[in-house]
């Protein structure tokens, strides 16, 4: 395999590992290296001094043509932060998110309108393919969990532990991120 093809796959691996690292909990304190690793992976995939060989070249070109995904993702993140989901609504954040989504739609529309049905319909079979892979993974996880012998029943929380859990819940589900 050529080093430029290898660079694309190394970038892909770093991107997915970075996203995986970022998703490790707790939800209020994400892994500090997750996002930088994912962005480094994305940069490795897209930035080259030499053009990668086929089939990777087609993938990189297609990714560059789909750069509207970047404002869309940032817009979705801002809308989720601004919407009254986890805390009170933040109208300015919400508006900024919708502006970015509008920009993404403006950029994406010409390529979406140019897509033919004969290209789109066979690609739809990717959905059951991905679902099948996830179903196999879920079955394997269930099998692995069932192979573990059951543990003895744990003791109930002490009063000190109960107070600690209560303080954690109050701090992180307090309803408003500005409250401390």
């Amino acid at each position: 395999m050529s080093p430029w093809a290898l660079q694309v796959w190394l970038g892909f691996a770093l991107c997915i590992i970075g996203i995986g690292m970022h998703r490790t909990g707790p939800a209020f304190s994400r892994h500090r290296f997750g996002a930088p690793v994912a962005l480094l992976g994305l940069a490795l995939m897209l930035v080259h001094t030499h053009e990668p060989p086929e089939p990777e070249a087609g993938l990189v070109l297609s990714m560059i043509d789909s750069l509207w995904v970047a404002p869309a993702v940032f817009g979705f993140a801002l809308v989720l932060m601004g919407a009254p989901l986890y805390w009170k609504a933040r109208p300015a954040t919400l508006l900024a998110g919708w502006l970015l989504i509008a920009v993404a739609w403006y950029v994406a529309y010409p390529s979406i309108a140019g897509t033919s049905l004969t290209d789109f319909l066979p690609a739809l079979t990717a959905l059951p393919g991905a679902v099948l892979a996830l179903a196999v993974f879920a079955l394997c996880v269930r099998t692995a969990e069932r192979m573990v012998p059951p543990e003895a029943e744990t003791e109930p929380l002490t009063e000190k532990e109960q107070r600690y859990v209560e303080s954690v819940l109050k701090r992180h589900l307090g309803g408003d991120s500005d409250e401390s």
């Binding site: 297609s62 789909s66 995904v69 979406i112 690609a123 739809l124 990717a126």
Partner: peptide, 9 residues
Amino acid sequence: ALAIIRILP
């Protein structure tokens, strides 16, 4: 990956 990119819209 190309099939998934095609159904992103």
